[in-house]
Nucleic acid binder design. Structure first.
Length: 892
RNA sequence: GGCCACUUGGCUCAGUUGGUUAGAGCGUUGCAUUCACAUUGCAAAGGUCACUGGUUCGAAUCCAGUAGUGGCUACCA
């Protein structure tokens, strides 16, 4: 007989198991089809892995993502679907470059300029490669059944071709344009940053009220006086009576050391008359809003002018006169000093202001004008053939495409309230600045020569052209991810045909805008199709106190440490249990340890079952059943199969796991296996149950289940590709009939005994007398005497069948009869009395509710007959019980 | 400022179309222990489901309002 070791030691098995899976090639659906594991015409199920950044190690967030996706993938693979899970990594342009720059400085004291672009990029690539290897190994550690043959990288040649192809197409459709606009500039990073990469930080600031000069009639308010050197207009609300008379007037103002500025008074609806002085100094060069006003005026034929006073180095420009060369803060101080001295400063007010900082570089963003590449989200174009239900040739914008697919439910977002957030974001979306002044990334596929411009997939075949030095925002290539990984731009690629659109996009809600929205934008535009059918957004993993995990707080729980300590399965389970979509999850080491205990429990359950199985065989046929506990457990098992499948398919991963655990630990281990010990030969059914629960658990706990499977059924077989159990409704129905007495009789009996012992001041139960009153239960004891004996042994009881009620015994009334329990020691009558009174009170309340319900005409009229019947039965049962309890109370 | 979510025993959370007397796990307390498992078993204590009102025969669940917490977002200069 085979026997398992006493406790499960994950590290003795995990690596070997993963190697076995990987070497089988069965993570690849093509191999599954070739080997006959999956049918050729099976339903496709595909996920592309949200590519981790090549900046370092995997953290708990990645582990959650991998665990959830692996559950889906393994479930669908076992279900027989043609299942593909594509791995990949993201070059994460700015993040990676910044990291390498930092390392370069720390280790060699050099900057990227010391190395030059080519050499620096080589270093970054080397770093990225190493990082990618680490990530791949870590994904394997987590048990992710990714098809490594298809691994992609956002910056590899295939993806680069996709990027260039899409860029060209968008340029030709007029969706990508080059424009001189106010953009978000990071002085520290020396690059533009998109709107989404800004982090708004609240900080105390000062609102200064001042006049440009003594003769200027309007006081304005600002938090940034230094930018006022670049003002070219003052905007007021057209309805504001105070300033109406000035609208359209021009002033030439001596602004002290900075020279003269021209100020035009303009009107704009967006100016709030209540805020500050109701007049706004317009700085077209250093505020996106003001730039908007500038463009509006210009379009109306009124060029108010634009003066850039802050440079890309964060210092004042020559246009700032004697302030030139000063830092922004220095200039602010000096200029305020000037205003104060000349009695132009009227008031200083302390306020809290929101400043935009760069997510990556951490510095305060300086809005300034620059010639950049943009994706126009409101430019309309003619859409081609598409699967979106839009007529070919219709005029649409990217914004509209993004809205329509979610509105029409072609893409479902889970949880659905994120749809609102999504729409809100799109409503406020501005053109997307896609060019970055960093070196690492997809270089903009545009070439210049003199005044000429060349936009194409390949460089012009002629000397003298220079490529645009900028690179593309990393999300540009990420946006193509679902199809660039499947063969695009080759439209004939098999994968693209077979697996696109993908089934599910599973990712964190924090990148809904960055990434999910952009994939929708890119895919609807490029392919005229959706990128995925469902978006499942998971929450963030936080520490025990609900704080974000961060190195500086020292509260990071490293998934790999946990895997080393408690095993992968326990770690995965702890991330899946209690994790509901869109909600953050608190994680503690204790939780993981708890699931380690469960892993071991499953191991020992299997160990016990194996010891009682004569001849393990992979057999899906339901064996002959002998006792009602067999029927009962089979019925429970099939209900669980049904529930688990349903819940996985509905993305309720936590609930499916919980149900499985409750069944395995509560019903199977604590009850059925205990009774099985007493009932004797169970070889066949134990084999069947073991078989089934290993399959059910496999998506959640791949390693321990595969290990047990191998130990039980031999190394040749592989659980990973076994067929997921299918619940049989007939079995459930039959089991309810044949096994109901387990729930109705045996378990209440266990409960009664324990309850009597614990609650009534009894030292020890001596004897149990069972009187079965209902006729159909006459055979119950005969059939299940073994289980009763087991109970007796467990409780050290003596069983007397059909006895008379002895003196001093306690009577427990159950719907099926009465149990008399004899005790050594006295019954605490006071305690017992209060208990009975409490119970009677509760049952009274219960019966009253039932009576009200049955008295309700509408209920009687509308409810189905079976339900009314059921309710009536409940009522009569409750009344009977009530009477019996009352009698008991009298007897005390 | 706008929007969104959350509020259930000491802690972490379930609770899927409103329907038995609201459930787990951890923790606490008591009891057990040669048995597959101390990474165990059996039990107990602990909740007016944030608050107020409404709809309903019936509300943790639906509606309105209040309070608190968290998040996203923003062109109050």
């Amino acid at each position: 007989m085979r026997e398992l070791s006493k406790a499960y030691e994950p590290k003795n098995y995990e690596d070997e198991i993963y190697k076995k899976w990987e070497e089988s090639g069965l993570f690849n659906p093509d191999v599954c089809v070739a080997k006959g594991v999956t049918k050729k015409n099976a339903e496709p199920f595909s996920i592309v892995l949200p590519p981790p950044n090549v900046t370092g190690n995997l953290h708990m967030g990645h582990a959650v993502m991998l665990a959830i996706e692996d559950v889906m993938v393994r479930y669908h693979r076992m279900k027989g679907d043609r299942t593909l899970w594509v791995p990949g990594t993201d070059h994460a342009a700015i993040a990676t470059q910044a990291k390498v720059e930092k390392l370069l400085m720390e280790k060699e004291g050099k900057t990227k300029y010391d190395l030059g672009r080519d050499e620096f990029l080589k270093r970054v690539e080397k770093f990225a490669k190493e990082s990618q290897d680490t990530i791949i190994n870590q994904c394997k550690k987590i048990g992710a059944s990714l098809d490594w043959k298809r691994i992609a990288y956002t910056l590899d040649p295939e993806r680069n071709l996709a990027v260039r192809t899409v860029f060209k197409k968008m340029y030709e459709d007029g969706l990508i344009y080059r424009g001189y606009r106010v953009i978000n500039w990071s002085v520290k990073g020396q690059s533009t940053v998109s709107d989404d990469e800004l982090v708004h930080v609240e900080r105390p600031g000062k609102l200064y009220y001042f006049k440009y000069s003594k003769d200027f009639p309007i006081t304005i308010a600002t938090t940034r006086p230094e930018t006022k050197l670049g003002d070219t207009a003052v905007a007021v609300n057209p309805k504001d009576k105070r300033y109406k008379k000035y609208i359209g007037k021009k002033f030439e103002i001596d602004i002290g050391a900075a020279g003269f500025i021209q100020i035009t008074i303009i009107s704009d609806e967006s100016v709030d008359p209540e805020f500050g002085t109701g007049a706004l100094g317009v700085t077209p060069a250093h505020s996106a809003v003001d730039f908007g006003m500038y463009q509006k005026q210009k379009a109306a034929g009124n060029d108010i002018g634009l003066i850039q006073v802050i440079g890309e180095d964060g210092k004042m420009t020559a246009a700032a006169g004697k302030y030139a060369g000063m830092s922004v803060l220095e200039a602010r101080e000096k200029f305020v000093e000037y205003l104060r001295k000349n009695n132009l400063l009227e008031k200083e007010e302390d306020i809290v202001q929101n400043v935009g900082t760069s997510d990556r570089f951490g510095d305060v963003i300086e809005p300034l004008p620059k010639l950049q590449w943009f994706v126009g989200v409101e430019v309309s174009f003619e859409i081609g053939e598409n699967k979106l239900g839009i007529k070919k040739g219709a005029k649409v914008t990217l914004k509209q495409l993004m809205q329509t697919v979610v509105k029409k439910k072609q893409i479902a977002i889970i949880p659905d309230h994120f749809e609102k957030t999504y729409f809100h974001w799109i409503d406020n979306l501005r053109d997307w600045c896609i060019s970055r002044q960093i070196w690492f990334g997809h270089q903009v596929p545009v070439w210049y020569k003199d005044e000429k411009i060349w936009v194409d997939v390949e460089a012009p075949d002629e000397d003298g052209w220079t490529q645009d030095p900028d690179t593309l925002d990393t999300w540009f290539s990420s946006g193509l991810w679902t199809f660039s990984t499947l063969g695009y731009p080759n439209f004939k690629a098999k994968d693209l045909k077979n697996y696109h659109p993908t089934s599910v996009m599973e990712t964190g809600y924090d990148i809904l805008f960055f990434w999910v929205a952009r994939m929708i934008l890119m895919t609807t535009y490029v392919l005229g199709d959706i990128p995925f059918k469902t978006v499942y957004l998971h929450g963030l993993v936080r520490d025990e106190q609900g704080r974000k995990m961060s190195k500086s707080l020292g509260n990071v729980i490293d998934p790999l440490d946990m895997i080393a300590k408690y095993g992968t399965d326990a770690t995965r389970l702890s991330l899946l249990a209690g994790n509901t979509p869109g909600n953050d999850m608190k994680l503690s080491e204790e939780k993981i340890a708890g699931f380690r205990n469960f892993t071991n429990k499953l191991w020992n359950i299997s160990r016990f079952m194996l010891m009682n199985i004569d001849e393990p065989k992979i057999d899906v046929n339901i064996p002959k059943l002998k006792t009602m506990t067999d029927w009962w457990v089979l019925g429970r098992l099939h209900s669980i199969i049904k529930e688990v499948s349903k819940n996985i398919e509905n993305f309720n991963f936590s609930m499916a796991g919980e149900q499985l655990r409750d069944f395995t630990w509560g019903d199977l281990a604590d009850f059925y296996l205990e009774s099985a010990k007493a009932e004797g030969d169970k070889s066949e059914i134990l084999n069947y149950i073991l078989n089934t629960i290993l399959k059910l658990w496999h998506p959640y706990m791949p390693f321990v289940t595969e290990t047990i499977w191998e130990e039980v059924y031999g190394k040749e077989s592989m659980l990973m590709i076994e067929k997921f159990p299918v619940s049989d409704h007939q079995i459930i129905i039959k089991a309810i009939t044949n096994g109901s007495e387990v729930d109705g009789v045996i378990r209440p009996l266990v409960f009664s005994i324990n309850h009597a012992k614990a609650n009534k001041g009894i030292d020890q139960v001596k004897k149990i007398n069972i009187l079965i009153s209902a006729g159909k239960n006459e055979n119950f004891l005969k059939k299940n005497i073994a289980v009763i004996k087991w109970l007796a042994r467990l409780e050290k009881l003596e069983i007397v069948q059909k006895a008379e009620k002895p003196d001093n015994s306690l009577v427990v009334v159950e719907p099926w009869g009465e149990v008399f329990i004899d005790f050594i020691g006295a019954v605490d009558t006071v305690k017992e009395k209060t208990r009975l009174e409490k119970e009677i009170g509760e049952i009274k309340k219960y019966t009253r509710n039932l009576e009200i319900k049955l008295a309700n005409k509408e209920f009687v009229k509308n409810a189905p007959k079976e339900i009314i019947k059921k309710e009536q039965d409940k009522l009569s049962d409750a009344q009977d019980k009530l009477n019996k309890l009352k009698e008991q109370l009298k007897n005390i």
